[in-house]
């Protein structure tokens, strides 16, 4: 079957002050799927996400997002992408709705429904509330709302369920699955292994800046009796599969 790749990196490398933090990183994400990005702290997940969004320039290798070069066509990519990188920041003195409106103004979107989006992420009736009064979980939800309000083709979410309670995590999982049904491609990272296992169609494992394996949850179930945790520990600690 001929599948369209929304994200594709080939031998990607990134160095900071001469130290390579990403090297020989090759990965691909198919359209309309959820790709889970797993790795230990400092493995390079956020750096890869930032490169995809053009926030960082690759030192080497090819990066294609939505069929375009991530450096040359950065603005076109940003128009069609929603992102949540690290802890979401807002204008504290403004309300949630005003924060989203500012985002829409920058994106050049005039017809988005702010109330509907807030309800979608579990923040109904708080649109007029200043963000300074929001809890960590509410901020995270608002960050997700900001990422998806302009109806992007690709969502890049770095630890999107950070700070959410179990109910919130479940709601977000359902939201991501619903979004996938509408054709949106989602690339997300998480430390919660079971979350990635339940949400992702394909999982990429990054160790010391290199994607060492791309696998489906189904394949993990078939190959590893202990499930994703067993698989992750084997791959990350051993640097190879449990074969």
């Amino acid at each position: 079957m001929n599948t369209e790749l929304v994200v594709s990196t080939k031998q990607l490398a990134k160095a900071f002050h001469g130290k390579e933090v990403i090297h020989d990183c090759t990965m691909s994400v198919e359209r309309g799927t959820i790709y889970g990005f797993l790795g230990k702290n400092g493995a390079g997940k956020t750096t890869v996400f930032k490169i995809l969004l053009g926030l960082l320039k690759p030192s080497m290798g090819e990066v294609t997002v939505l069929g375009m070069d991530s450096v040359k066509n950065n603005l076109d990519i940003l128009k069609r992408t929603g992102s949540l990188i690290e802890t979401p920041l807002f204008y504290e003195h403004l309300s949630a709705a005003e924060n989203l409106q500012i985002h829409l103004d920058y994106m050049g979107i005039t017809n988005a429904d702010i109330d509907e989006t807030l309800a979608m992420v579990g923040l109904p009736k708080v649109g007029a509330q200043p963000v300074s009064t929001f809890s960590l979980g509410m901020r995270q939800r608002l960050g997700i709302a900001r990422a998806l309000i302009h109806k992007p083709e690709l969502l890049i979410l770095d630890e999107p369920v950070n700070g959410l309670d179990p109910v919130g995590i479940k709601e977000m999982r359902e939201l991501f699955c619903n979004m996938k049904q509408t054709g949106i491609t989602i690339l997300l990272s998480s430390h919660i292994l079971s979350e990635i296992e339940q949400t992702a169609d394909r999982i990429g494992i990054i160790v010391d800046g290199t994607v060492i394996q791309e696998i489906t949850p189904q394949e993990i179930k078939e190959q590893y009796a202990g499930g994703i945790e067993d698989y992750f520990m084997t791959v990350v600690n051993g640097g190879k599969g449990n074969e």
């Binding site: 930032k50 076109d76 690290e86 920041l89």
Partner: peptide, 11 residues
């Protein structure tokens, strides 16, 4: 971190 937000806009 605020620069991340600023550079995420397609402007």
């Amino acid at each position: 971190k605020r620069a991340v937000l600023l550079f995420s806009y397609p402007v």
